[in-house]
Simulated scan of single mutants.
Amino acid sequence: MIEFQSVIVAVAAALLYSLLWFSRQVVDPTKETPKFDPWKMGATLVIGACIGLVSVISGIEISQAGIEAQLTSYGFLVAVVEQVGRAIYRNLTQVE
């Protein structure tokens, strides 16, 4: 049976990443406040769920002592996967 604790932690990390990114855009007075896009947040949550599933399949367990470290590492992984995915998408869809 699959334990979904890693998936939940990874999705929570993705949610925190999304909210931090959005709040950073809203707080910056030099930039126009972006319109909230639930599709972007949903895509980030899906990335978090996938990272959690991969960690479950690979056998990584979450301990109470290491939950903060795993939340941080999942958040980092979400950011990296999302930024690399965006760069690849932009490169593939670039009109020459």
Rank of each mutant, 00 (worst) to 15 (best):
Met1Thr: 12
Glu3Gly: 09
Ile8Asp: 06
Ile8Val: 09
Val9Phe: 01
Ala14Val: 04
Ala14Arg: 00
Leu15Val: 10
Leu19Asp: 08
Leu20Glu: 13
Ser23Trp: 09
Val26Thr: 03
Pro29Ile: 09
Pro29Gln: 01
Thr30Lys: 10
Lys31Asp: 10
Thr33Met: 08
Thr33Phe: 11
Lys35Val: 13
Phe36Val: 04
Asp37Asn: 14
Trp39Pro: 02
Trp39Leu: 05
Met41Cys: 03
Met41Thr: 14
Gly42Asp: 00
Ala43Arg: 11
Val46Gln: 04
Gly48Phe: 01
Ala49Trp: 04
Ala49Asn: 00
Cys50Arg: 07
Cys50Tyr: 05
Cys50His: 10
Ile51Trp: 04
Ile51Tyr: 00
Gly52Tyr: 00
Ile57Arg: 04
Ser58Asp: 15
Gly59Cys: 09
Ile60Gly: 07
Ile62Trp: 03
Ile62Leu: 12
Ser63Gln: 11
Ser63Gly: 08
Ser63Cys: 04
Ser63Lys: 08
Ala65Thr: 06
Ala69His: 01
Ser73Phe: 05
Ser73Lys: 06
Tyr74Leu: 00
Gly75Gln: 07
Leu77His: 14
Glu82Gly: 15
Gly85Met: 02
Gly85Asn: 10
Ala87Asp: 09
Ile88Gln: 03
Arg90Gln: 13
Asn91Phe: 15
Asn91Glu: 15
Leu92Asp: 09
Leu92Lys: 14
Thr93Gln: 15
Glu96Gly: 11
